[in-house]
């Protein structure tokens, strides 16, 4: 069955909605984005306004509104669930972000404000963030750079990577690996079930650091001059250190403790059956067994 349609009619059908909308924002407003699927990319500018650029077929709609202290961007479907719609958003750097998506990949750069992002099947990639920063994906990976504050980065299935960040950090994944580089944590909890956990950053006096995994390896880079009480626990795994440590306590060979310097920070390293490896900064990758 051949359709007799003019190309103009077909082209008209293919066009839906082209959006390029800018709404004003007053200091203190927050940005609330709800996206069913697609790529959402957020960048910043110096204007007190939010610009949304998107194009969607006639099956979907993008709604942009500014009510009260909230700028809302929402994707909708005319019938049934919305199609995947890519959103390009530009917002002021001070603007707090709340984003919730399902099949949504998120990329954010430049915000200096609290950020909360949740997606199900999508990767989260953020450069920026201040205050409460919470990034979550179920299926996808989470990557965070240049953030400071109370940081939470969680994935269920994939890797979580945090770099050039500072503050109180909580990182979790079940299946993925955790990589923490140039991270200045005052307190750190990093936990995986299947994957490796690696930390390369200062170990502050009085700080608490906990790296745990079940199946994976632990890697900790220890700067010279660190003051820490270190407790290493494993059931079936191994411990190796690139520098000399004098072990103060051993429990049946599966748990050992040692002190570095004054012992001020508390460091807990646990891998049920992997290798726990201490190295000097920058040397963490060397000597790791390749899988």
């Amino acid at each position: 069955m051949l359709l007799t349609l003019t190309s103009a009619a077909l082209a008209a059908l293919a066009l839906g909605q082209d959006i390029d909308t800018t709404v004003q924002a007053a200091r203190g407003d927050r940005l609330d984005i709800s996206s069913y699927g697609g790529d959402v990319s957020i960048q910043t500018w110096s204007r007190n306004a939010v610009r949304v650029v998107a194009s969607t077929s006639s099956r979907g709609r993008v709604e942009v509104s500014n009510v009260g202290a909230v700028v809302t961007v929402r994707t909708e479907g005319r019938r049934g669930p919305p199609p995947h719609i890519d959103l390009e958003i530009t917002a002021p750097a001070w603007m707090r972000l709340d984003l919730s998506g399902v099949y949504t990949d998120v990329k954010v750069a430049g915000l200096q404000s609290p950020i909360s992002i949740e997606t199900v099947q999508g990767d989260v990639d953020v450069s920026g963030g201040q205050g409460n920063v919470s990034l979550q994906s179920v299926e996808g990976s989470v990557t965070l750079r240049n953030a400071k504050g109370r940081i939470e980065a969680h994935s269920v299935n994939q890797d979580v990577s945090v770099s050039d960040a500072s503050g109180e950090i909580n990182v979790e994944t079940v299946n993925g690996e955790i990589s923490l580089k140039h991270v200045d944590a005052t307190s750190l909890e990093a936990s995986s079930v299947n994957g490796d956990v690696r930390y390369d950053g200062p170990i502050h006096d009085g700080g608490r650091y906990s790296l745990t995994t079940h199946n994976g390896d632990i890697g900790l880079a220890v700067p010279a001059g660190t003051n820490a009480s270190v407790s290493v626990s494993t059931f079936n795994g191994e411990f190796k250190s690139d520098f000399e440590v004098s072990v103060t306590q051993t429990h049946k060979g599966r748990r050992l403790s040692f002190t570095l310097g004054s012992g001020s920070a508390q460091v807990t390293l646990e891998s049920f059956q992997g290798t726990i490896h201490l190295a000097r900064p920058g040397k963490l990758e060397e000597g790791e067994d390749e899988r």
Binding site: V120, V174, V193, F235, Q273
Partner: peptide, 19 residues
């Protein structure tokens, strides 16, 4: 999504059994 959750639950369950 169901597969992702099931697999990760299975991962955790194995870890629980081993622990």
């Amino acid at each position: 999504t169901v597969k992702v959750i099931e697999r990760n639950l299975a991962t955790i369950d194995s870890a629980i059994v081993e622990a």
